[in-house]
Amino acid sequence: MWNKLRTDEYEGMLAETITMPGYKGDQIHAYFSRPLGKGPFPGIILIPHMPGWDEFCRETARRFSQHGYMALCPDIYCRFGHGTPDEIATKARDAGGVADDSVIGDCEGSLEYLNSLPYSNGKAGVIGMCSGGRHAFLAACKVSGLDAAVDCWGGRVVASKEELTPARPVAPIDYTPELGCPLLGLFGNDDKFPTPEQVDLQEEELKKYGKNYKFYRYDDAGHGFMYYHTQMYRPRQAMDAWEKVFDFFGEHLSLKERD
């Protein structure tokens, strides 16, 4: 829980850039942080958003580790080259975006990496924001072995045929029957991408197929309301959302020894 750390407890973490196998065995970079100690710790795959594999993602990974999680953020954009996050995000946009199959493969590699660690408790979730939220829902449907997923205002989960591309050939909502783990969704009611109506459609599909989910929608908040480094930031809504995230992962990624 946020700000419930005891003042007399030791705290420490390791955070570093690593190389790991991703889609089709590609060696990709990832930012990895974990608490110090033998664990066992649950794992979280943090999918970067379209602003890129950026400083916000690294700070978010460390926030999870401060609360007892291993956090792995794969550079899903690495195949477009290397440079500043803005430079590589621009290249990705110009190329039509990173392919869904590539993201799924990188998530599968991330999950395998986390589960292979001797201090893993054998449980792992996925979270993403913006395009990463879309990817988190996609991973929850297509990657076997995830225990929980969080979609933060993922755009184009609901998409028309005209919005589909070779890189994104299927609207993720069409994979709803395959959703294999509990889902948490966080949305701003002033968002245009996704709109409240699109969130309604996604919720209807989840209900239709009897999926385990919780959606929270925030008034006076739009797209990116948790981005504290932008004008979109809404502190009250953001901190409530963080509480929801920690409660959700705490429930589904409980600190248990491997079976």
Rank of each mutant, 00 (worst) to 15 (best):
C78T: 11
T60M: 14
E11D: 06
M13T: 05
R62V: 05
T17W: 11
K4L: 11
C78P: 01
Y69V: 01
S65F: 01
Q66R: 14
P42T: 06
G52T: 13
E87G: 02
F64V: 03
I44Q: 02
E108F: 00
Q27S: 14
T19N: 10
S110W: 01
D86M: 13
E11T: 08
R63Q: 12
G105Q: 12
L114M: 09
P42C: 07
A30M: 06
A15P: 01
G68N: 03
S102A: 13
D86R: 12
L72T: 03
P40N: 08
G68E: 05
L14T: 14
F41C: 09
I47M: 04
G68Q: 05
R58C: 07
S116H: 08
G83P: 07
E16D: 10
P118F: 09
G52H: 10
K38N: 14
A71R: 02
A95I: 02
I45G: 01
G97D: 06
I76Q: 05
S110N: 10
T60K: 12
G83N: 09
G81L: 03
E59P: 00
G97C: 03
C57N: 15
K4R: 13
L114V: 06
Y69H: 00
G81P: 02
Y31V: 03
G52L: 09
D101S: 13
H29S: 15
I44V: 13
G39E: 08
P51I: 11
W53I: 07
D100G: 01
G12T: 02
R58I: 04
N115W: 14
V98D: 06
E11R: 10
D8M: 02
R63S: 06
E55V: 13
A61M: 01
D8Q: 09
Y119C: 14
D86G: 10
N115L: 15
S102V: 14
A61D: 02
A30R: 01
G105K: 07
C107Q: 07
C73G: 00
T19A: 11
E108M: 09
E108Q: 15
G22M: 02
D26S: 11
A15D: 09
F80T: 05
K24W: 00
